[in-house]
């Protein structure tokens, strides 16, 4: 298994919001990808957006552009 890295992990209220996140990030070439929500954040399931922490501002701007409200932003080993 690959070594874990510290990542910015954005969680959402719904899968629809996660898909909206992926769509805007692909469109605007914002780095990251969808991953299962890490156990360190929530014991439930669902999708989260994982990206290098240095891209936080870019990611927040992308969400703001489409009116997307995240559940939470975390930094954790992924």
């Amino acid at each position: 298994m690959r070594e874990k890295k510290m990542m910015l992990v954005v969680t959402f209220h719904t899968t629809a919001d996660a898909m909206a996140m992926e769509k805007v990030c692909k469109r605007d070439q914002v780095p990251g990808r969808l991953i299962p929500v890490p156990r360190a954040i929530s014991a439930g399931c669902g999708l989260a957006w994982s990206a290098p922490p240095e891209n936080e501002e870019q990611i927040c701007q992308a969400m703001a552009r489409v009116g997307l409200e995240p559940e939470e932003l975390h930094r954790c080993l992924v």
Binding site: H13, T14, T15, A16, D17, A43, G44, C45, G46
Partner: peptide
């Protein structure tokens, strides 16, 4: 719902 699996109630947010 694929999200909030340990909640005893259906998630509040649309469309879920």
């Amino acid at each position: 719902s694929g999200v909030q699996s340990y909640s005893c109630t259906q998630p509040e947010e649309y469309p879920t």
